[in-house]
Amino acid sequence: MLHRFANPTRFLRIASIAQPWIAWATILLAGTGLYLGLFNSPADYQQGESVRIMYVHVPAAWMAMFCYTSMAIAAGIGLIWKHPLADIAAKATAPVGACFTFLALFTGSLWGKPMWGTWWVWDARLTSMLVLLFLYLGYIALINAFDDPARGTKSSSILVLVGLINVPIIKFSVDWWNTLHQPASVLRMDGPSIDESMLWPLLLMALAFKTYYIWVLLVRIRAEIISNKIRILRLRQVHG
């Protein structure tokens, strides 16, 4: 199946057809998710209304992990089978992943403030999310650090694969480190037992974030294919 998309111009055609559908799906899903989440789902007996932040925080955290793994898979395919589109997909996923990681951290600390009384607690999951953010920023910095884009893509694909092996190790170390410095007052983050009416908005929002990711990915891949064509046309002008 992969090779059917290998040809960039065919991909451009399919992408431009699919894009409006994906866009409408995202808007629809997000709309219903927000409506259910904000308007007709109960407040949590312990945390009250602040649990509504969960409908944004948890999907963002899921997306942060999802984007890093899909980036690693795309980079792997790009490196092993020299698949040009896979490299571009990895490069296009990074900013989306970084944005979701930052959102997860931001909403996490907003959610934590009423409970813990401080904006930031070195909770195991939040700290791992912070490290993940720097893995993303390192990737984005490396990919733009070379004049020759092919060099940038190759180096950063190797980095994201090295990073992928390290993510579980870092996660383990941070969890272990966190239990060591466990401040007594920390409330379990995922305290509220999710009853059925809360589950729906959560899943809808998660789905909306995924279609949003595909939407941005399609736009970015089309842009990267065109910028490659531009580079080749310019090179041809130079070399004649």
Partner: peptide, 26 residues
């Protein structure tokens, strides 16, 4: 990884410091 990159030094720190965390923690 940073061979041939612009501003290699800062980039190197950005890339490998997260990977150093387990060694630091333990």
């Amino acid at each position: 990884l940073i061979l041939g990159a612009r501003r290699g030094g800062v980039l190197l720190a950005l890339i490998i410091l997260p990977l150093y965390l387990p060694v630091l923690i333990f």
